[in-house]
Structure formats: structure tokens, C-alpha cells
């Protein structure tokens, strides 16, 4: 908001917040946002399961670019590392281990698809209306030092958020142990695969 502190590297179109004259950052945000939204839409509508996971990569990568445009660099790289790097790989392994069909599967969508579409469109209209109405005259000031560089994020995280951070590490450890226990139990008794549902009682006995 302060015009006197405008650095020479700031773009000239920033100073008066033109409602219909978007800046370069806004145009880039809009284009990447459209790509992200399109990839997300393809992810939830495609009938090929592996393609859904691959379009999810595009959506999550687009979100990382949006974080970079919002000057949150550390979050952007964490997003690339954790989501694009590991979560999608986990999902692909899950698809392979449950023997998801390669190619089109006609029953990817359930029968209540139209109800789901109605709910989604209704909530989208409501949310967009409320958000646009609430923040019509609000601008983010993106000039100056980055609000989310590694230095700033690390300082705030280890100065103000140490206890939640440590609690979160314990939670992550618990989740790891839980995931190992959940998948080890099923693998220990018989050969894995769809034939494993024949000897259910002994397996259930081990689960108690």
C-alpha cells in the first residue's frame, strides 16, 4: 500500500489497484490456475485410473507454481517434494497393488454422480459468491522481501511453533507404525492377492 517504498523492480502497473487491469503476476496466476483447475477436473472425471493419478501430478505441480507466485517459496518446494514426489507415487503403488484396470473402466463413477454434481455446483456457487463478495476490495502486496522464504518460515516455525512441530513428528511416527502394522498383518498369513479372502477366520483371529 505504501507508494513511497516502491522499489524500482516493482512493476509500474501496481500502484493504483486497477480492478480490470491485472498485473503480470495476476495474469500468470490466472493462467496457471486455469491449468490447475482443468487438471483437477480431469482427475475427478477420467475413467482411466492411472491417468487420474498422472493428472493429479499436473494439478499439484500447478499449485506449487501458485505458491511460488504468492512468494511462498518453501511451501512450494515442500509441495513438490512431498506431494508430487511421494504421495502420487504412493497412490500409483496403491493402484497397482489393488490391480486397478489399465485402460477405461466403465464403473469408475458411482450411481449418485448427478447428485454429487448438484452438490458440488451448489457449494461452488455459494463459496465463490461469498468469497468474491467478501474480498472484493482486498489486495495482496507482493512486493518487498518474500513472505515465505526458507529463512522466514524457519524462523517462525522454530520460534513460535516448536511444540506443534514436535507433536506433529510424533503423529507422523504413529502413522508410520500404524501403516506398517496394517499392511504387515495381511501379508503375514497367506499369499497376497484376491485368493486371500478364502481363509478369513484365521486372519481375523490374528487381527484381534
Amino acid at each position: 500500500m505504501n507508494l513511497a517504498a516502491a522499489a524500482p523492480l516493482a512493476d509500474a502497473a501496481h500502484a493504483p489497484h486497477g480492478f480490470l487491469s491485472p498485473t503480470g503476476v495476476e495474469i500468470a496466476f490466472l493462467l496457471v490456475g486455469l491449468a490447475t483447475l482443468g487438471a483437477a477436473l480431469v482427475t475427478v472425471t477420467t475413467r482411466q485410473l492411472v491417468h487420474a493419478a498422472l493428472w493429479l501430478v499436473v494439478a499439484l505441480g500447478g499449485l506449487a507454481v501458485e505458491y511460488l507466485l504468492l512468494t511462498a517459496e518453501f511451501i512450494a518446494w515442500v509441495q513438490v517434494l512431498i506431494y508430487v514426489g511421494s504421495v502420487v507415487v504412493l497412490l500409483l503403488f496403491g493402484l497397482m497393488l489393488t490391480r486397478a484396470p489399465i485402460g477405461r473402466s466403465p464403473d469408475a463413477d458411482s450411481g449418485n454422480r448427478w447428485a454429487a454434481l448438484a452438490v458440488a455446483i451448489a457449494s461452488a456457487v455459494a463459496l465463490v459468491w461469498v468469497v468474491v463478495d467478501a474480498f472484493r476490495t482486498t489486495w495482496i502486496d507482493l512486493d518487498g522481501p518474500a513472505a515465505g522464504s526458507t529463512r522466514v518460515t524457519g524462523a517462525s516455525l522454530f520460534r513460535h511453533w516448536v511444540l506443534p512441530f514436535e507433536a506433529l513428528s510424533v503423529l507422523l511416527l504413529a502413522a508410520l507404525v500404524g501403516a506398517i502394522v496394517l499392511s504387515r498383518k495381511a501379508k503375514a498369513d497367506t499369499a497376497p492377492g484376491p485368493s486371500a479372502d478364502l481363509d478369513v477366520p484365521g486372519e481375523k483371529e490374528g487381527a484381534r
Binding site: 495476476e26 485410473l49 487420474a52 469408475a108 454434481l117 452438490v119 465463490v128 489486495w139
Partner: peptide, 30 residues
């Protein structure tokens, strides 16, 4: 940057995910 851009984008993404949760059958797609 206008604050409405990221807010609207996140609202639309949320509703996309909502549709996916309600309409998909495969648990991994959910």
C-alpha cells in the same frame, strides 16, 4: 494481486474434490 484470485481458485478446487469424493467408486480415487 487481488485476493479474490487465490480465494476463488481454492473454492473451485475444493468443490472439484468434493465432487470426486461423492462421485467416485474406487477408494483410491476417493
Amino acid at each position: 494481486m487481488h485476493l479474490a484470485y487465490p480465494a476463488v481458485l481454492s473454492a473451485l478446487l475444493f468443490c472439484t474434490g468434493l465432487y470426486g469424493v461423492l462421485a467416485r467408486r474406487n477408494a483410491i480415487l476417493v
